[in-house]
Design a protein around this nucleic acid. Sequence first.
DNA 1: CGATTCTTTGAAAACAGTCAATCTGTGTGG
DNA 2: CCACACAGATTGACTGTTTTCAAAGAATCG
Lengths: 191, 191
Amino acid sequence: MDSFRKYIDSRVNITDEEFARIVAAASIKKLRRRQYLLQEGEVWRYQAFVLSGCLRTYSIDEKGQEHVNGLAIENWWPGDCESLVTGIPSKYNIDAIEDSEVLLIPKEHFDRVCDEIPALKDMVNQMYRKGYIAAQNRINAFMSYTAEEKYVFFIRQYAAFANRVPLGMIASYLGITRETLSRIRKGRLKG
Amino acid sequence: MDSFRKYIDSRVNITDEEFARIVAAASIKKLRRRQYLLQEGEVWRYQAFVLSGCLRTYSIDEKGQEHVNGLAIENWWPGDCESLVTGIPSKYNIDAIEDSEVLLIPKEHFDRVCDEIPALKDMVNQMYRKGYIAAQNRINAFMSYTAEEKYVFFIRQYAAFANRVPLGMIASYLGITRETLSRIRKGRLKG
DNA sequence: CGATTCTTTGAAAACAGTCAATCTGTGTGG
DNA sequence: CCACACAGATTGACTGTTTTCAAAGAATCG
């Protein structure tokens, strides 16, 4: 919970009273490794904040293949924005890569306090804007980079993930196979 | 200008007075085909709305290759969110595919009226959220789909662009070469 | 028209994927 | 404490989709 307060304080100014109101309806969910936070077909109804641990968001395509859409460690907000906003069932799964603790704030409550605390709303909107920009940059990577360049780019940007997330999941996140990433790491891709 | 009013009205309720305030500092920029709205290295300082025409956002990578990052027709908001928010020089170029008319509202003015008119702010934030979701879906397409599937997906979602945007630019938007897209259209990719 | 822009076609090459087998490390239960 | 099971990583050989290169063919604009 402390880390959540710190996270907010580093972005906007709120009072103790306001913080109490924000987390009034929150719960802390402890997840074992491999345990689901969200499964495909469910509607996602929370604002979620990672207190500790590491999670992954993935989807399964028509060919049965898994694709890692996102990764989240401490101070990240996992979830399915599309399902949250529109109320449609999620096409994603979220599960824990490590034992994790996630703060869950129900959507209705969160929306209410956002209306009451403008600073919080601003923070959230800033968050989405950043997410949008990050997504654009990821699209750029898909368009411009070779497998190796994508990996280098990833390591530079998300060094914190490199040692916590299995190679296969990083590969999937980058849109390449684990074999290819393994070869990249060993420098045996060309020649 | 009418289409801008209609666009807003279809999303939120504002008064005539408020609308007047929103567009008080706005200007209409007419662009000839191939003319730039933004060039790499410039800082993007507007909220822009397409009144008529068709624009494309593209970037040039280290290898000198062009990549179409976005397309915009009537009722779309072209621009570089990252440059707008952070103030860093843009890595994108935006130019007109057809003669176009774009409504330009300077950032400072727009931010001010957003603070004055909560409904407008909500609309903008909703916009970014949708952009974020769309970006995620585009990433999914890059991860899961073959060249042909990406094209089918594009046509289904953005039929309005298909006849206005040259094949080469659609191909680039999809992350494939124009030759490949040409072959897909002719059904000569496999066999 | 003539020129530029855009699209199509063919052949060869390459990057990355697939398949299949092996290897490594770690945690669990007997 | 060992052995087995399981998740994850590596390796090699082969395949295939897509790219690249090069050239020619439509189409559009002034």
